[in-house]
Computed example of a mutant assay.
Amino acid sequence: MCGRFALLAGTDLAEAYFDLAELDDLPARYNIAPTQPILIVVAGERQAPGSNLPERRAMLVRWGFMPGWVKDPREFPLLINARSETAIGKASFKAAMRHRRILVPASGFFEWRRPEEKGAKAQAYFIRPKQGEIVAFAGLMETWSSADGSEVDTGAILTTAANNDIARIHDRMPVVIRQEDFARWLDCKTQEPRDVTDLMKPIDDGFFEAIPVSDKVNKVANMGPDILEPVEERIEDAPPKKNKGAEAPPSSDQLSLF
């Protein structure tokens, strides 16, 4: 699951990490929530200078995937995540897996450890890479067109089973694409979904560290750096409660583009 994340990396770092020719100034975003615009990286149509690979470009999409066949988005669930194990064959994501794979730049994501005990308070964590200030999540995009001809670019983050480090908090985590695999993941012309299934697996143990933070992150209105301040971790004897159903963050006070 990935219901909230942060992007704190500066413009120069993001340009270099994703090999982007140009990128507008990036403001630090500490609490990115569903339905908000998110930065993504896609393979461009033109060939990069001095390379036989397509150039990469950045763009903004709405976080909340909308398949092209949806008639009324108000009657369709908010798809912020897609399960990597089933996305290839699922009607909502099948076309995007084949034609519109993307990278989602992030500095880390938030997750909540929900204990089995009824009424017990969930512990929030900021989960970030131990090395470096930026990471790439695997994602999918789709452009939804309304009856009046207006269009909205939308996206979702792919998830996979949690590795051993994250499993104590939650049973799911975002799919991380390593820098050396960017070209293959983004290449939808020669790399079919079955050719990139090996990339959709849990990242190695030790890649992430989990920092306990306060429940300030639960509210979309809290967007400052204070939500990343470490707190004393609440220790529970029971294992974390497994989420069932739709993957969504703990707070529903989201924006809407529809």
Rank of each mutant, 00 (worst) to 15 (best):
N243Q: 10
M223C: 15
A246V: 13
I102H: 13
L228T: 12
W112Q: 08
P250S: 13
L79K: 13
I177L: 06
L8T: 14
I157W: 06
G44I: 01
R178H: 14
L103V: 06
T11Y: 05
A91L: 04
G68C: 02
R56M: 09
M173G: 06
A136G: 10
R128Y: 15
K189G: 00
A221K: 15
D181A: 14
R184K: 15
L186T: 12
D226P: 11
Q191G: 07
A28N: 09
E85W: 11
D226A: 03
R128V: 07
R101Y: 02
G50I: 12
M66S: 10
R57K: 04
V61F: 05
R62K: 15
L13P: 05
A120F: 00
E55P: 05
N243P: 02
A82D: 00
A58W: 01
K216M: 13
R114V: 13
Y30R: 09
E151I: 03
R74N: 11
S251I: 05
T160R: 07
A167Y: 01
M223L: 10
A248G: 09
P37N: 08
D181I: 02
W112R: 03
L20R: 02
E232L: 11
A6H: 07
S251R: 01
L60D: 14
F126R: 15
A248T: 13
W69V: 12
V220E: 15
I38G: 09
D153M: 01
G132P: 01
I40M: 13
F65R: 05
Q36D: 10
Y17D: 03
N52D: 14
M1K: 12
A16R: 11
P193Q: 01
P239L: 08
R57Q: 07
A221H: 13
G119D: 01
F126I: 08
M97Y: 01
T197L: 14
D226V: 08
N52Q: 09
R100F: 04
L103G: 06
G50T: 06
G149R: 04
A6M: 03
P27R: 01
I166T: 07
P49R: 10
A238H: 07
R29D: 01
V231E: 00
I166S: 02
A248K: 05
C188H: 00
E85D: 05
K90I: 02
I211P: 07
A248C: 07
D195T: 06
I235T: 05
W63D: 07
E229T: 13
A238D: 12
R194N: 02
P240T: 06
P54H: 12
